[in-house]
Simulated assay, not measured.
Amino acid sequence: MRVLVTGGAGYIGSHVVRALLQAGHEVVVYDNLSTGHRQALPGGIPFYEEDIRVTERLTEVLLAERIEAVLHFAALSLVGESMQEPQKYYDNNVGGTLSLVTAMRQAHVENLVFSSTAAVYGEPEKWPILETAPTFPTNVYGRTKLVIEGLLADFAAAYGLRYVSLRYFNAAGAWPEGTIGEDHGTETHLVPLILKTALGQRKAISIFGTDYATADGTCIRDYIHVCDLAQAHVLALEHLGRGGECRIYNLGSEQGFSVRQVIETAKKVTQRDFAVEEAPRRAGDPAVLVASSAKIRQELGWQPQRSELETIVEDAWRWHKAQPGGYGD
């Protein structure tokens, strides 16, 4: 299929671009580079440095490039910032998606794979989390993603939009060859923060809370290799290409890893010791967040290949060690 990837120069989007190309799809990237990096994209593919909120321009590109499906990653995703700047997040995430599906209607493009988040569940009482679990997001970022899922369902019912929404927690790792990886202007993710500490770019890594009801007292989170996430998006696209129905899928490890496990694995992989500080709990941090991926495994045959914790950290370390300054080097 000939596909448009919005936010394709971002961390997850750039990995999906490569997975799509490997699977034989034709790719066009649409990204305003507010958080993405042009260097993360392979040469030779059409690239538009544009904002998806400009509906008329987006419609022009969809028509001119003969797009058959869209994979949508263009979003702001910093939880803390979302609580301080809700207007910014509703404008970009919800407004941008409304602009996108409006342009898709005008260009007669019916297929959409949406990058959602397990943050729509908030603080669930049971885990691993199923797609049928109640959705009570505890931050603005998660609420914008849940609003978008409702928007997509409404467009599907009224206009025939066909979509797959993928909900996941922590993407981690990097392309195995180390050519692309994680590089955020404001880094909030645990794995890159640990590896930056191992590189001496940070004085210490902080553990927020050591008295949770878990085996080692630290929070347990879901980590999925970004390449396994990318493969799930390819499978979702091909499901729609076969005429498949609208679906919502979780992407998870079904086991999760504690903060201490991630730190100790990083020390083993990097063969470097570094300072670890214990800090008080952060408000709103649940003890365990782990999603079930049974549904997508059964229905689409998704089989993660690189989501063992050591493999995730090894691939991420290869990228960070080779590019300590990220794409700026």
Rank of each mutant, 00 (worst) to 15 (best):
L240E: 11
A204K: 05
A198N: 03
E238N: 12
A213K: 09
L193W: 07
C227S: 13
I220D: 02
G243C: 14
L251D: 02
H233S: 06
T218M: 15
E238Q: 14
Q231P: 00
Q201R: 09
L229Y: 13
H239G: 11
T188R: 02
R221M: 08
Y249H: 08
T188S: 02
P192E: 06
G209H: 04
V234S: 05
K203L: 12
L251V: 03
G244Y: 01
H239V: 12
T210E: 15
G185A: 06
E238M: 09
A204R: 10
H239P: 06
R202C: 04
R221A: 04
I224K: 02
Q201I: 05
I205Y: 03
I205W: 01
G209R: 04
T210L: 10
D211K: 07
C227M: 15
T218Y: 12
E187M: 08
I207K: 00
N250R: 08
L251G: 01
C219E: 15
A230N: 05
L251K: 05
L229A: 05
E238Y: 08
Y249R: 06
R221C: 03
Q231W: 11
T188Y: 03
V191Q: 00
T214F: 06
E187C: 02
G252P: 01
T186S: 01
A215S: 13
G217V: 10
T186A: 01
D228L: 07
E238R: 11
D211F: 00
A230T: 07
L235S: 10
I194M: 05
N250S: 08
Y249F: 14
D222C: 04
C246K: 03
V234E: 03
L199N: 11
A204N: 07
C219M: 15
C246V: 03
V226C: 10
H225T: 04
A198P: 01
S206K: 14
A236L: 02
T197K: 03
I224A: 06
I207P: 00
D222N: 07
D216Q: 15
H233C: 07
D228A: 07
R247T: 01
G241P: 01
H239R: 12
A213L: 10
I205H: 01
G243V: 15
R242L: 08
D228K: 07
G252R: 12
I194P: 00
L251R: 03
I194Y: 02
A232V: 04
D222V: 11
G252Q: 14
T188A: 00
H189M: 06
G243K: 13
A232N: 06
G241F: 12
L199G: 05
L190A: 12
C219V: 15
L235G: 05
L240N: 14
D216H: 14
L195S: 09
F208N: 11
A230P: 01
T188K: 02
G185N: 04
E187K: 00
G200S: 06
H189Y: 10
L235H: 08
T214R: 08
L229K: 05
S206W: 13
L251M: 07
D228M: 10
S206Y: 14
V226P: 09
L235N: 08
S206L: 10
G217L: 12
A213H: 09
